[in-house]
Structure formats: C-alpha cells, structure tokens
Design a protein around this nucleic acid. Sequence first.
DNA 1: GTGAAAGCGCTAACAA
DNA 2: TTGTTAGCGCTTTCAC
Lengths: 333, 333
Amino acid sequence: MVTIAEVARAAGVSISTVSYVMSGKRTISQETRDRVEQAIADLKYSPHASARSLASRSTNVIGLQAPLRAGVDVHVVMEIVAGVVREARANQYDILLLTSDDAAGLSRAARASMVDALLVMDIESDDPRIATLEELETPALLIGLPAGADGIACVDFDFEAAGRLAASRLAELGHTHVALIGAPEEVMARHTSYADRLNRGFLTAAEELGLDAGVHACPSSQESVAAVDAILAERPDVTGILFHNEGALPYVAGRLSSGIDGRELDVIALCPANVARTVPTLTDSIDVPAEELGVSATRAILQLLEGRDLPPVQLLAPRLESASDAAASASAS
Amino acid sequence: MVTIAEVARAAGVSISTVSYVMSGKRTISQETRDRVEQAIADLKYSPHASARSLASRSTNVIGLQAPLRAGVDVHVVMEIVAGVVREARANQYDILLLTSDDAAGLSRAARASMVDALLVMDIESDDPRIATLEELETPALLIGLPAGADGIACVDFDFEAAGRLAASRLAELGHTHVALIGAPEEVMARHTSYADRLNRGFLTAAEELGLDAGVHACPSSQESVAAVDAILAERPDVTGILFHNEGALPYVAGRLSSGIDGRELDVIALCPANVARTVPTLTDSIDVPAEELGVSATRAILQLLEGRDLPPVQLLAPRLESASDAAASASAS
DNA sequence: GTGAAAGCGCTAACAA
DNA sequence: TTGTTAGCGCTTTCAC
C-alpha cells in the first residue's frame, strides 16, 4: 500500500503539500505540483478512502435504497439506478446499495457514517421510512412523492400530470369512454406513490373533460391478456386506453393495437422510451424518463450536500411521443 | 456523533473494553458487558465505519460490478444482485455498486481500499477485466465463466449443462430436429460467456444424440415474433425448441405453445422460475436460479475473505421443471 | 509557497 | 479481566 508519506518523500516535499496538491485547496508552485504529480503517478498512489473520510468527515458515498426484487417495473428501476450511479461517479461519489423494505438499514448506514447522504426509492404514499429519515442528520432525498408534505425533499416523474396528459390526449382523439389499465393489484394495494398519483391525474382530468373513465388493475403476466379482455368486455364503450404496466405490455401490445372484435382502440403506453421502441405496434406513448430521473435525483442530493437550497418537490414533466416520432428518433440514432 | 470514548465514560470502562465487547475478541465479565451494552443502547452508539476500517484494515464492503443498462435479462441481473446484497448483509458486509464496462473502476475501488473484495458480473468469454483483477491484491470472483482458465475464481449457473439437458430432453420427447432460440445478435457477438456455453452444450449434446440442431439469435422485442416465424419457416422440420431470451418470451410464448401452422412444438424455456410462472402456457422450463447464484457467489467470496480455499470453478447444476411441477409449486405457495 | 503536528475514531498490541 | 497507548493514513490548522 502506497501512503501519502511515501509520495511526499519521493517528491521531496511534506505530507501536507501532497494533500494540498490533490485537493487544490492551497496554491502550489508549478514546479512543486509537477514533482508531486509525477511521484503520485510513479508510485500509483491512491489515497486510502477510510483515512480520508475519517479526517475529512465525509465519505463521498451516497446510500441508495432500491427495490431489487423482480415484480415492479424492472427496467425502470434499473435505469434509475444506472442514472444515479453514472451521475454520482461523474461527481466523485460512489453508491452504497442498501436493500429495500428496511428502514433500519437507512439509519445504520447513516449512523455509522458510511454515507454522506441517502437516496430512497420505491416510495409509498404513506411511507414509514420518512419518519426515520427525518430523525437522521444525514441529508436525504426521496425518488417518489409521498402523500403528506414533509421535511424530506422529493424528486420524481410527474405521474399525475402524465395521467392528465393521457386523458386529454384521448379526449382530443375523440374518445368518450376511456380506461387506465395499470399496475397489478398488489402495487395498487400498497399505495405505491406513483400508482396513486397516476390514477388521480387520469380520473380528475377525465372528469373535467366529461369522459367516462375507469381505473383497472392488471397482472404483469400472461394473464394480462385475459384480464384486458375482461376489462374491455365489461366496458364495451371504451375505445381509449392509457396503459401503464410494463410487464404486461408485451403480452397485450399486439392485441390492443389490432383492435378487438372490430373495435378500434387508441392506446397510450406509459413506459420508458426504449421499452416503447421494442413494441413497434404501439401508437402513442408517454416516456418515463427513468435514467434522467436518477440523474436529477442525484444532482439534487449533491446540491443538498453542497449546502445549497433545493425546491422541496421537483417533478419531471411528461412528454407525449407519437409512434411516428419514436420511429424517427430510433432510425436517427 | 457518539464516539467510543463517550460510551466508555458512560459505562465507566476503558475504550478498549468497549471495543472488545463489540468484537468479542476478549473475554469480558458479564457485569462489564452488561454495563457497556446498556451504554451503547442508551447513547445509540454505532461505530464510525471509516475509523474502524482504518484501524482494522478492512472495510466490510464488497464491490459489485453489475450491468445496469436495460437489454440483457433485466430480471436475472436484478435477482443476482438481490441475492448478493442479501447474503452480504447477512454476513455484515455492504455492497458498493460499481458501474460496468469499466475496468478502471475496479482498480480504483480496490486501490483506494474502499472494498475488501470484488464481485464481477456480465463476463465475456475473453474478458479484459480479468487481467486487471489479477494485478490487484484484492480478492475477486467472477459471476460468469470466461474461456481460459485463469487465476480468478468463478461461480456461475452451468449453462453448458443446461444446453445438454435441454437437448436430451427434447430427444427424449422424440424430436429429431431442434433449435436453440437464444440471445439477441449483439449478445452473441460480444461472446457473453453464458451464451457461448449454452450454445456449445446444446449443439454438442444434439450431435451426440443424432439430432439436427441449430442456434438462432433472436431480438428481445416485439420483432421476436417475426424472427421466430422466420426461423420456423426456414427450418420446417423443427419441432423441439430451447428458448433462452427472457425479453422475447412474453411475445412468443402464446404463439409457440399453441403450435404454428398445425405444427406441434415442444418448447423448453430457460429462465428464472418466477418468470416462467408468469407464462402459464409454457410446457417445460429450466430454472435459472439467479438469486441463488448471487447468494452462492457471495458465499464463495466470503470464504476467500476468510482465507479458506475455494474450488476455482463452481457451477450450479440445471434442473428441469415440467409445467405441471411449476403449477403445483405455484399453487402450493 | 511550504512544513510540522494535532487530531479524526477506532483496533490491537502491550502491560498489568 | 481490564486499562494504556501506539498507530491506521489522511486533512487541516497553525506557524513560518
């Protein structure tokens, strides 16, 4: 193990000079800087992370609590995580991966000073972890939006606006009977924050627009086919659909796009653009900018770490993409 | 921040006693232990991770390099990661998440002493990161199996045996013309270790059994439907299929199970059991025990950390599950 | 522009 | 069975 002392000796300077060359917190003569940097390179020195964090009282690590189990929108979770890791690394931070469904894990990491900040995913409308986070002195940020206003900053995709956007788009297309086919029963039951908000946005906008609207749960399995058939049978006037169930999408996409029993349907899928692109028969879609969300959340928490102020809630606005746009951008790339 | 010194003062003992109470490396009288533990609880003390790792020269952190981008078997990756995190936590280790496609990230984490060991996923047959790992003094383990025997231990699912198993099962069912419909072109082209091995196992076993066999790439998108049709058109005698493409499975499952143009097909899907369970029309499947794989890999690297010996290659054996078994276990749970 | 030295909060000899 | 203390490798005052 190469230590800072060896680098200092090799460069013929003091330890503190080496430290200041690395941190840039002091002006150093060009000549000295060169010698030190040469020594660092020659010896392949990298500072010991723990020693550094013990002395500086910061770890340059962000704790990320992500839902890892298959079931809920795996692609979305993966992309958010990828965005978080990428943006963190771009700012000299690393990511400590914490298991979900575990409030204790959050305080453990924080109290052991393993992390400088916490990023928490998979938020429920009334999430028990929020109380834990509020007791901690560690900066924290939610990727999600719980029901109550609270002391923890939030960053998320604006699912409520997405619901409204879809409803008005369907109205614009002339539909009077619309349906949101969404998350599986379990997710709805847990009041996962995004499902609640999407439902609300869709239903309120539909009501304002005078549409006959309903929300329907849907399994993320092959059984989605039968489920969708049942929904359409039960509501024979429905011709406009907002579909938000990434797992079920592949099963039902072909069926929906070709219409059912001669009934022509317009389907708006709410999913990441690259998922939508794997389903060419889709008509419209609303992108869930998952990676961008991870990036935004990370930027926000980095702001907190710099002591800068932050809007308490930051929502990424939805954008409608018609299939022709998607095809165009796909062929362009 | 509560320090060990405050705990010591509160309990009326020296700081080393507190340390030894926590580590159990010294016998402590029951009375003293009680007082110390009480003080720890009262003050909500948790030891400072960096201070501890600086003094003890170990971090209790394992670096995990995982492929985070959507594209390759998202469910499988997630479950492996979940298994790793779970098993690591059960043994007092945390997981530092490193971005993939980045050999430099591995040595950075190792040389900064951020991790005690490295776990590397998404291995290609001839992976450039192996050379990097061999230069490091940090224990490392691959989840995957590169072509050449090398100094780094490997744990993986036995894809080659799975290929053989599928071929012989199809032979047993009476098929003489079989096909492996597998990963997308890009994955094959990269020589991802698992794809290479699956192909080899399937083809060699088929040859031994006198089957007419072929391997076909398949996109993980809706286009898989057309791709599969093309494959079946091109090889009109094929009636037995090993299907290994989780992304495409939902698109083609129904079609394959119902037979095509009156041709009856037997399809064995190679995918995690919980994915297979979401596709009720599947006949046979071979489980990819992804979470178990993560657990095994983590156990193996923990052994390395304890200085115990390890078999250089450890492969989880495939098991065939018929659809009736799967249905039975699903209804039992 | 540079150096000396006092910690940061622990662990693990060494001593009793 | 317990206490004292010398580090672990760095950052950052304080001094020049």
